[in-house]
Every structure is written in structure tokens, then in C-alpha cells.
Amino acid sequence: MEVVLFGLFSSEDEELYILDCMAYCMIFMAVGVFVILLFEKLRYGRYSDSKYGFPVNAKFAWFVQEMPSFFVPLCLLVWASPAKTSLLPNQLLIAMYIFHYAQRCFIYPFLIRGGKPTPFIPFALAFVFCFYNGYMQIRYLSHYAEYPADWVTHPCFTAGSVLWLVGWVVNVHSDHILRNLRKPGETGYRIPNGGMFEYVSGANFLGEITEWVGFALAGHSVHSSAFAISTIVMLASRAVHHHKWYLAKFEDYPKSRKALIPFLF
């Protein structure tokens, strides 16, 4: 793998430059997506639309589109030199990323109950994003990221790690609540309650945003920051659309509940 990657670039400096450019491009694209999502919804789940491509089974779509976020990093790590992967800050940041996507790839899809098919275009775009981001994050952390020897005790790393863990717990718990809204054989939608759903309509989105904001704080790089910004743009929009949808569909929907940020937004 190292030979292949170095064959694509004239030097390590060039590859690092490309990784930086990828991060800035992701931020630029996030700005564009933000503008688009002011007028459009992400077309999967309850907002699926056949004009965005043929339907792909929900379990299959989630499994396949998340695969690059796990297997691309895994391949990069198998052939990575130990110069950076033996360092504790790098190991912990890589573990955060891999742990999240192991759950999203091998556990989450197979717990889905009757999810609506995903149109092909959103499915394909998600696959490309996961491949792009998986390479950018882990190639940087496994080969280029350098942190002070005491970085794991730095307030940024400590606070970021705590945020990541809290966000992961909120995300997984919120998904559990959503999966168990219906009894076996039931169809339709119900109001989610419990956990962070007592405060916001997008509790699962709040959890994932918190995760990657924490990751960005702990990672302290343009690459992790770009991922956090992209996540905020896409999932904040999703939370707002869900909130409006709940308010329109259910007359008894809690009026004090916010879309994404408890008590504020």
C-alpha cells in the first residue's frame, strides 16, 4: 500500500498538500451543501423520492455506503509504518474513528426495522463521501499527524475525547429509541420519547454532531475540522426538517421541544 501511495505522489510533502486540499475542498463543498439544503431535503428515509434513482434496500444501502469508512482506514493501517501509528494520540484518534464506523457498518444496518429504501443517488454520494473522508482522516493520522508528547493530557484532547464519548452514547441510545418506537408488525410513525428526545427532535443527529466536534477538538487539524463542519451542515439540516415534519404531523407533539440544541434551537 505504501508503495502504491508513494507512486501517486512525488514526495510526502506533495501527499500532505493533497490531504490539506481535500480538507479545504470538503469545507467548500459543505458551504455549497448548506445553501442547497436551505431549499431541499436530503432525499433518504422519510423524504425518499424516486426521481433521485431506483430504490436500494435500506439495510444493504447503510452497510455498503458505510463500508469505505471502515475498510479504507483498515487497509491504510495494515500497511502503515509504525512511526506515527505507535504514538498514543494518533492511536486514540484512529480508534475513535474506527470504533464509530465498526458500529455503523456491522451493527447499525442489521438492526434497522423496516427502513424505507434509499434512492440510488444519495446512496452513491454517501459511498463516495465515506471513501473520501476515510482516506483523508486515517492517512493523515497514520502517516503525518504530529502531536506534542503530552497531547493526551491537553485540555483540547481531554475535552474532545469526552465530547466524542458522550456523543457516541447519545447517538447509539437515540437510535435504540427510534428502532423501538413500533411494535413488531406496526407501520407508520410515532413520537419519540426518552433520552435526549425529551429535549430535541434530532437527538440522534445531536449525538453524532457532538461526536465529530469532539473528534475535531481532540484531533486539532483541518482534516478533522472539515469532517465536523460537513457533519454539522448535513445533520443540522436533517434535524430541522424532522422537527418541522413532527410538528406538522402530530398535533400533540411537545411544543417545548427544540430541533437540535436543547432549549435554544
Rank of each mutant, 00 (worst) to 15 (best):
Y52L: 02
R257E: 02
Y101P: 02
W164A: 09
S142G: 13
Y52K: 08
L141V: 11
F120I: 05
T210N: 02
L5P: 09
M196R: 07
D49K: 15
K116Q: 01
Y101T: 07
M1L: 13
V64L: 08
G219V: 03
L181E: 04
T210S: 10
N171D: 06
L111T: 14
F205I: 11
Y97P: 06
F28H: 12
T118W: 00
R179Q: 14
P119N: 04
C130V: 09
G219C: 05
G188L: 13
L163C: 01
M29T: 15
F227E: 07
C105G: 14
A149R: 15
Y246Q: 06
R182F: 12
A23N: 00
P89G: 03
G202R: 01
F129K: 03
I191S: 09
S48T: 04
P155I: 11
L163K: 00
P262S: 01
L163V: 04
C130W: 02
V166I: 02
L235Y: 11
V200G: 03
L77P: 03
P119G: 03
L163S: 06
A218H: 00
G32T: 09
I138T: 14
V200Q: 00
Y17R: 14
A95Y: 13
A236H: 03
K84F: 04
N57C: 14
A228T: 08
E12N: 10
Y199V: 09
K244Y: 07
D175L: 09
I261Q: 05
L165R: 07
N57D: 15
Y101N: 06
V233E: 04
C156R: 12
F205L: 10
N193W: 13
I94R: 09
F63A: 11
R182D: 10
A95D: 11
R46A: 07
E211G: 13
Y132S: 05
W79L: 10
G185P: 12
H220Y: 10
P119V: 01
G195F: 06
I94N: 11
S256M: 09
H154N: 15
Y52I: 07
G32C: 12
T210D: 03
L92D: 04
P55T: 02
V78A: 12
L38I: 11
I229P: 02
A126E: 01
L206A: 01
A95F: 14
L8A: 11
R238T: 00
E198C: 14
A259V: 09
Q65I: 03
S10Y: 13
F106V: 14
H143M: 14
K41E: 09
G202F: 00
P254L: 04
H220R: 04
F6H: 14
Y101Q: 10
F70N: 06
C130T: 00
Y246G: 07
A102Q: 14
D252S: 11
T85C: 10
L206R: 05
I18K: 07
R238Y: 08
F127Q: 10
T231F: 06
K59R: 15
D252V: 05
R257S: 01
Y140C: 02
G188Q: 09
A30K: 05
N193S: 15
P82Y: 00
L8H: 02
L38V: 10
A203D: 01
L5E: 13
P117M: 05
R113M: 08
I191G: 01
K59F: 12
